[in-house]
């Protein structure tokens, strides 16, 4: 049995040597990086420059003929579907025209696929139009999400966060005399922490930082 000792010792040495290559992969895979599937969960964010934003999971409801979670974010409702494999968001794009709110694009779109990885990338887009009061309004939308890496959150409180950058471009064009295409470009840097969700979000005009999180049931 002496010969067994040699490879056994070698493997132990290798374990020690490769110890620097260890990381909590299974922990990240098992964690919920956007845990919206607990009714009553609440996230309290501080807004850079003053104020707070409360986000809470209100209930389960139906939207677009699918069961989903309804989330109150400030004064607005958003709708999400959480699965083990992916997270979907109900895109509800509207534009104001002549005093009327014109719906342009409503659909469930995958927000992220699980599990996230460094370098993960997904792009979603839509091109559509609506006719309102005899005028055609075209709508082009594109969102790209890229994971930059595994980081600690900007405030240093949350580890093993995925740093995600989203670039979202929207072009609305009222096809009538006097109107030009209206382009909106938004870039968001988002940090998602394991079993907490969004802990920081930075855009050109605002920054959110998680102050308190309470998980619901």
């Amino acid at each position: 049995m002496r010969w067994l000792a040699v490879p056994a010792i070698l493997i132990l040495i290798l374990t020690a040597v490769t110890g620097c290559g260890r990381n909590p992969l299974f922990f990240r895979m098992g964690a919920g990086y956007y845990p919206i599937n607990y009714i009553g969960s609440q996230w309290e964010y501080s807004i850079d420059g003053g104020g707070t934003l409360i986000v809470s999971v209100i209930d389960q409801t139906e939207k677009g003929e699918r069961a989903c979670y309804r989330i109150l974010s400030g004064a607005d409702y958003t709708y999400w579907i959480a699965n083990d494999g992916y997270l979907e968001f109900y895109e509800d794009h509207r534009v104001m025209f002549n005093g009327y709110e014109v719906p342009l694009y409503q659909a469930w779109v995958t927000w992220l696929d699980w599990p996230l990885t460094t370098g993960y990338s997904r792009t979603d887009s839509a091109s559509t139009f609506a006719v309102n009061q005899g005028v055609t309004i075209s709508h082009d939308w594109k969102r790209t999400s890229i994971v930059f890496g595994i980081e600690t959150s900007p405030d240093g409180k949350w580890e093993q966060c995925y740093h995600l950058r989203q670039n979202e471009t929207t072009i609305n064009w009222i096809r009538a005399a006097g109107f030009e295409p209206e382009t909106t470009i938004v870039q968001r840097d988002i940090w998602l922490a394991p079993d907490v969700g969004l802990v920081a979000r930075v855009t050109a005009d605002s920054s959110l930082t998680l102050v308190e999180y309470q998980q619901g049931n």
């Binding site: 990381n23 992969l25 696929d113 599990p115 990885t117």
Partner: peptide, 22 residues
């Protein structure tokens, strides 16, 4: 059996750092 496992995860063009664990 015992040994080492190199675990590597990839998804949608991305790859997490591989981990070597006993």
């Amino acid at each position: 059996a015992f040994g080492l496992s190199r675990s590597s995860l990839s998804n949608s063009g991305g790859t997490d750092p591989a981990t070597w664990d006993p």
